[in-house]
Amino acid sequence: MSRHHGPDRSLRHAVRLARVLLSSQYALMLEFRAEIVLWALSGVLPLIMLGLWSGTGVASIPGFTPQRLVHYFLAAFVVRQFTIVWVIHAFEEDALQGRLSPALLQPLNPFWRYLAAHVSEQATRLPFVLAIVALVALVHPAALWWPTPAGLLLALLATHLAFLVRFVIQSALTMLCFWSERAAALERLLLIPYLFLSGLVAPLEAFPEPMRSFALNTPFPWMVWFPAQLLSGGTVPVARGFGVLAAWGLLFLPIAVLLWRAGLRRYSAMGA
């Protein structure tokens, strides 16, 4: 136990912490598996939209065949499942139940715990998402496809990055809980453009021109449409996609940190 291996020790500590956090959160999430199935089911929007699009206007989307459309919406469904973020609700609940103060006494920023909870929840969700995809394949064998290894890898990366960016943005919003009881309502408001612009209701190729450029300048399509296209083998500007996601993440990370510090000051000033 030499004291000279500081960096090595802190790395070991971090690995151990991550392992413990993830395994305990996974056990917790398993307790809520029924809930998580329901959550997974509540992401059916892309499948409903698939129904609508396949009935009509496929021909009007440039570069889409009926089969490509099935692949796209199925991919969007999967991507959405693994980019769901609920940190603001968890935080609000914890603050309301008085669990925040004890958490602040631990030598670990509570957001690491929330992050571990999200990752664990995704792991719990995985089998159910696979089951739903299998079900679709059973009904509709042509709906399945094999993504290229490169496409799969990029899609995986993009999905995780999209999740992280959403997590960071929502965390920044979460910090407003320190000032307002209505921070979660703001998140609900932000979810509306996400819903319509992210590509959940239609691939961006279906958007008319000024709208499409506008949407691409928001972070939303890069969180669903971009990974979904990568996964389903569509053409997307890969470098731009990763660049945009990274930029939004890097923009909001310092905002979240600053708001966290200011929020804590306010919290402790008010006597918790």
Partner: peptide, 20 residues
């Protein structure tokens, strides 16, 4: 916002001369 989004989505279907 919800109404605007719904109208926009609907317009995607009708925009190209199709209907629902």
């Amino acid at each position: 916002a919800n109404l605007a989004g719904s109208l926009f989505t609907l317009s995607l279907f009708y925009g190209h001369g199709h209907d629902l």
